[in-house]
Every structure is written in C-alpha cells, then in structure tokens.
Design a protein around this nucleic acid. Structure first.
Lengths: 338, 338
DNA sequence: ATCATCCGTGTAATCGATTCCACGGCGTCG
DNA sequence: CGACGCCGTGGAATCGATTACACGGATGAT
C-alpha cells in the first residue's frame, strides 16, 4: 500500500509538503498542491489512520458502550449516535456489555487502549472501579440513558416522570387500582427512577405500591416472565403490569399467555421504551416513548463539546406516553399512537 | 498516561525488556520479569494499541459492514460476530450501511484507513467498484448472508431452499393456491435467491408465480406495506404473502390491518428470517429461521483463517421452517415453534 | 585452557504520518 | 542599498511501541 513517501517521490516534493497539502495547510504553492493531488490520485493513496493517530494523539473515534445491543431501544440509540458522530467527523466503535459488568469493563479497557477520543456509556451496573478511574483520568466521557451517581460526568437522558404520571392517570381512568411494576436492577439509575416515578404517580391517586407488586427484573425478557409469574400466583394478582423496559414487557406477555390469560381483558400491560414492534404485538402495547434520536444527538454533541474544549452540558428530555390497546380500550379523546 | 519508557525506568531495565515481558518472549530472566510486572502494576501501564499497530502492521480488529443494524436479524448477527471475534482475540468495528451503497463505501473506506485486519461484509447492493478493489487488493474479506457474484471471496450463508420448500408444502397443505412474494432488491443475492427458491417450490406443486404476485421491496418495512397494498388491489388478490425479510413482513402486516383484514383468516403471512418478536405479533408469524449464531461463528472463523494464513472455506448452512399461526392452524403433527 | 554457544540484555532502527525549525529567495521599506 | 520579514519548502525530530543486532558473561565441549 502506497505511503506518503511514495506520493512525495511521485510528485517530486518532500513528505512535509504532501502532508501540508493533505491537511489544508495554507503555505503551499498552487503548483505543488496540484502536483501532489495528482500523485495522490495516481497512486490511490490513502493516509494511514494509525500512523496519523499516533502522531496527533487523536483518533477521531468515539466509543459507545451500551448494556444490550439486542434491546431495540439501544440498537436505535446506537444507530443515531453513529449518524450524529459521522456528521461531526467522528467514527464510532460500539461495545456491547450484555448487561455484564465484566464485559463492560472489557470493552471500556479495549477502547481506552485504542485511544478513542471520548466515551459514551450507558452503564450496566452501579459502576465498576474501572469506570470511575477512567472518568477521573480525564478521558472525555458522557453518560447516556443510565448514569452513575457520584461520577462527575455529563448525563444525557430522558425524564419519564411526566409520562409515567400520564400512564397512571390513564390506567386509573380505565378503572385499574392494583398496579404492579417490574423493576430493573437496583444498581442502575433507570431501575430506581422508574419505580419511584411510578410510586409517586400512584400516590397522587391515593394508591400504594406494596412490595409484592414490585418484581425484580434485570432488563431481560426471562426476568420479566419470572416476575409476572410471581404476580399471577399472588392471592390478589395485580390488574396491570408495568414493565420498566421493553424486553421485560415481552417476557410478561409470554407469562400471561402461558397462563391462558388475555391482554387487556384479564390483565393490562404497559412498558417503558417504545419500539416499532409494539404496534404489531397482540394487542399493541401502551408504552412510554423516549426521544431516542434527540438523546443520541445531544449525547454526541455533549461529548464532542468536551473533546473539543467547550463546556459540555447535561441534557434531560421529556418522555411521552403512547396509548395503545394493552391496558383497555383507549377513550376517544386520549392521545393515541403517533 | 504512562508509556513503556516510564515502565522501563521504574523497573530499571530497558524498553526492550519491558516489551519482551509484555509479549511473553522467552529470553527474559525471572528477576527482570517480576520487576517489570511490578512496575506495570504500580504505574497502571497499558500498552498503546495505536503505536503497537503501527509497528506490527496489525490491529487485531475486524470490520463488519452490514446493510441495516435496525433489522433484528443483522443486530443478532453482529452480536454473535463480536462474541466469536472476542473469543479469537479480535475486536469488531461495525459499520451500518442502512441499505445505502454510498454509506457502505464510506464505512469500508474508513475501516481500510484504520488498517483493520479483515472485513466481513453483507453487501447492500450489487457491488460498488470500491468493494471490488478492496477484495482485489488482498485485504482479507468474507461475505456473510449476502454476497457479490464475481468477487472471489469466501461466502458464509444460509440456504433457504429446503425451508422454503417446506413452507410451500405447508401452505399447500392448508389449501392455499395463490401465493405471492415480496422480493428484496434484485441487486442483492438474497433478493433473487429467495424468489427463485419460492418459484421452484411452487412448481413442485404445479403452481405458477405470476409477475403480479412478485412485489418489489427493498428490505424495509415501508416497501413491504406498498407491495402488499398492491397485492390487495388486484382483482384476484393472493391468499398468502411471503415476505423475503422480517421488516417487509411487518410492513405487510400493517397494510393488511389497515384494510381491516385479518391474518390468517383473510390472508396468510409468512416471512424469511425469524426473530424473537414474531412469537408475540398478532398472530405469531410463521417464518424461515436462519442459524444466525452459527453463521456468525463460521464467518468469523473463515475470516480469521484467511488473516492468519490458513485457507478459508465458504460455508452454507440450512435454514429451517418455524410454523406458527399466521398461515392458518398448524396441523398437530407439524413442527411448531421451538 | 580455549573456543563455541547460548542466554539475558541494551542500543538503535523502524512503522507512517505531523510539525518544528532553518534556509534561500524575494519583495518592501527606510 | 541594506535590512527585515514573509513565503514556500525540506530536513529531521517525534509519537510509542516492536525487534534485529550486538555484546558481555557464563557454560559446556574438546
């Protein structure tokens, strides 16, 4: 593969001049510039990004570590992150943690070893020592969706409290009084937060959230199934199950069907995170939708700000309720899908 | 960030010795080894992958360019690819082409510039000049799922003919005679192939595949919707729609529902590519399932073989039919889900 | 005792770019 | 007319690792 020396030789100039032309440096004669460009064209020369990165100490690459690529919410997030990053001239390397702290650490370490310019993280857990160290070491970092309290890094996320309140109002309006939630891992911020938002909204309607109505999940479908089975075995099972993410909602749907029950007639179902498939499930599922594209854009911009020496800002965007049929027939005046 | 020189100084040896210890080179005294290791530990030293790559001319990184990350089939593929690559000591950088040749080229070029050791591609189109050049230039490359005829590169893919034949037999057994297909872009191999397999299977039952029953899609949901609307407007609409990928099946489902029709009572639906969500749609969708994990593993192994100087092999694995309810009630003796 | 070998180690070249510094030529200004 | 400055350019240092080669000392064979 042709190197910068070959180009210099071909154009009859020094490597310094070639480099200057390629980087748009002003002091190069028109003459030299055209000769170099011609040589580049002739040889099909492409600069070696590895060598360039070594010298300049920047890779124009962002790392994105997410907790689970198979979760459509994160897939979508990743897609938009890459899109915005590309627009700003960065590449993205994705690391999938599969909700495993050890895998998360593996990816963080590899990314740091590759000297990525900045790190976007949606932590799978309460924060391993590694993540703290990285943040402390001055590597530009931004949390997206989930974050770790006590680590001083900008956070870009959606606030679900308003939407959850709307959801509870909707459920209450349909006559439901016994509402249960399948929570995420307590170690994740989104885990807690969604439970607390739910509890708060229930309180507004004079309802309590008994411990038996809080299922412990881990954001995976299987845990949603288990938690729902637990609910269904209760002497007084809930009338509604609210899953804190879309995969657990799917598990819940499984468990409900396995019992021969019907949604929403026998039990209602709602989920956090809206995904395209929820339109097509039987029945379509009512969900709290996050502004994924905006979150991704804001996160990338915050990170780029941090990298390029500007001051990054934490951003919180509101989520919104999308009513479908899984909690009972929507009243005609309620907001519906889209 | 500490460099190898710092470690050498701390341990009181030369950088060469440090490097030897880190790379498990034999001729290093036990003494020196422990001192170096202690220094590494003390300084929290991590080798700079960029510098290492420049010198060794290898990055231990694989590029994976897929046509659409949002398609769960590819998401899953990507996940398993990363898993297998990690097991073999490689990292993976994913490039999402969004079914756009220009974006595909962008990613291929960036990956080559970064001097990845090998490239796994599921081409979005018939093959841009760039892809040909890269293959010709000797960059290790393997096609997965889709490939480009005329480029001499190993191909790892699933063969759907058997499963499609099973599908058609199943449909025929249920009494369906007017079967339509939503094809993928003609430029992709999977596009053609699935149509031809379908046509062949129909012929076995003495059925024809009229042009009006071949919808033109592009592997995206919207195209499935359009094609299905076309079918439904026909004087004699088909009794079954077979979508050549899962997203188009979703579009088809949309179009059918929008008409107020019911699956499978009014019209049957089947899809190529099985995904977890098909269990939860209303009704659950009959599909041809590809052995995604095995494909991913085989592809990575083929690429690693090529990179490491062994002879890579093309691999073709059989797909299988998963019968659910979207084509009519399954006979009790038929293979069902799982 | 002598010489060849081998082992552990260090010095320095190298990978392919960027960039600091010096230099020659030329225009401008005093 | 001499000095100064600027412009375009090239030489060489540099980034942080790996590795070929050289070297000194110990060991073993003859």
């Amino acid at each position: 593969m042709a190197g910068i020396k070959d180009v210099a030789a071909e154009a009859g100039v020094s490597v310094a001049t070639v480099s200057r032309v390629l980087n748009g440096h002003p002091s190069v004669s028109q003459e030299a510039r055209t000769r170099v460009l011609a040589a580049v064209e002739a040889l099909g020369y492409r600069p070696n990004a590895v060598a360039r990165s070594l010298r300049t100490a920047q890779t124009r690459t962002l790392g994105l570590v997410i907790s689970d690529v198979l979760n459509p919410y994160f897939t979508e997030l990743a897609r938009f992150v890459e899109e915005e990053a590309r627009a700003l001239g960065y590449s993205v390397i994705i690391g999938n943690a599969d909700e495993r702290p050890d895998l998360q650490d593996h990816h963080v370490r590899t990314l740091i070893d590759r000297r990525i310019d900045g790190l976007l993280v949606s932590p799978a857990d309460g924060g391993t020592p590694l993540l703290r160290d990285v943040a402390l070491s001055g590597t530009p970092m931004v949390f997206v969706d989930r974050w770790i309290p006590g680590i001083d890094v900008p956070v870009v996320r959606a606030d679900g409290t308003g939407a959850v309140r709307d959801l509870v109002a909707h459920l209450h309006g349909l006559g439901h009084r016994r509402l249960a939630i399948i929570a995420g891992p307590a170690a994740t911020t989104t885990g807690d937060e969604r439970v607390e938002a739910f509890r708060g909204a229930l309180r507004d309607h004079g309802l309590a959230l008994p411990d038996a109505y809080i299922g412990q999940g881990d954001f995976q479908a299987a845990s949603g199934r288990r938690a729902t089975e637990g609910f269904l075995e209760l002497a007084e099972p809930p009338e509604v199950v609210f899953a804190a993410d879309n995969l657990m909602a799917l598990g819940a749907l499984d468990a409900i069907r396995a019992r021969g029950l019907r949604v929403p007639d026998d039990i209602a179902l709602a989920a956090f995170d809206d995904i395209p498939w929820f339109v097509h499930t039987g029945p379509p599922i009512t969900a709290v939708a996050q502004p994924t594209a905006d979150l991704a854009r804001a996160a990338v911009r915050a990170l780029a700000d941090r990298i390029e020496g500007r001051t990054p800002q934490s951003v919180t965007l509101p989520a919104r309720l999308v009513v479908r049929r899984s909690c009972g027939e929507a009243a005609p005046n309620e907001r519906s899908d889209r």
